[in-house]
Design a protein around this nucleic acid. Structure first.
Lengths: 111, 111
DNA sequence: TGACTTTATCGGTATTTACCGATAAAGCGC
DNA sequence: GCGCTTTATCGGTAAATACCGATAAAGTCA
């Protein structure tokens, strides 16, 4: 990321993983994966592969990114990896955005 | 992005800019900038520079990314560029996340 | 006009990301 | 055990990103 180590030190708030989560779903493929997963209780890597023309390894890596960001859970079932949405994370994200919007409303020019 | 041109063609929905917006705020510096801008009616590049130890050019470029994603507006005032939050965009983002969460709730194992 | 302020853009570099094919690992069913 | 399915990981490459300093552009103000 080539981000200077102290470039955020002026931030009074402790670092959180909101930006990480946003970054994770801020890719068209991963955003799509999340929406596909939201449509069903769970889905395996193969299911997600069916949604794209990408290689299996690429899809697997995208799932891994979502996992690392804490947005999905994995459960091993036989040879399959069963992925599912993590509500807490999604909820946190929703709250963050809502709070941001509310803050902006309070401080905008007209009110 | 090195994304195969047709990798999303199976997506029934037309492309939207949600992923672009998420990607834009999915960087710690830009996420911080957005939150800083939300705190005030408007802010110029110099104001944002004060929040970081990054160079002016770098901050300017981050602002440019946010602008391109449609998350902020710019108004020229003298030599200064006055940036402000775009509510519509933020609201769209909030709705998208909320809908995602709702979809997930409806389709989860215990729902 | 000339010095100053403010911001955008350019050129360059280092790092990260996104993708692929190949292969390894691990469970399933015969 | 053996072949099959499924997924993760490795090695490699191309592209995008993040940063910087230098400089240009454009308004302000004396």
């Amino acid at each position: 990321m080539d981000l200077k180590a102290d470039s955020l030190t002026k931030d009074s708030q402790p670092s959180n993983n909101t930006a990480d989560m946003l970054k994770a779903i801020g890719h068209p493929v991963r955003w799509r994966i999340i929406r596909e997963l939201a449509k069903r209780p769970r889905g395996c890597c193969g299911d997600m592969c069916d949604c794209f023309t990408l290689s299996q390894s690429t899809v697997s890596q995208h799932l891994s990114v979502l996992k690392s960001a804490g947005l999905i859970d994995v459960e091993q079932i036989g040879t399959k990896s069963s992925f599912s949405i993590r509500f807490d994370a999604l909820k946190d994200l929703q709250v963050e955005i809502s709070e941001l919007l509310e803050t902006a409303r309070c401080n905008c020019d007209d009110g």
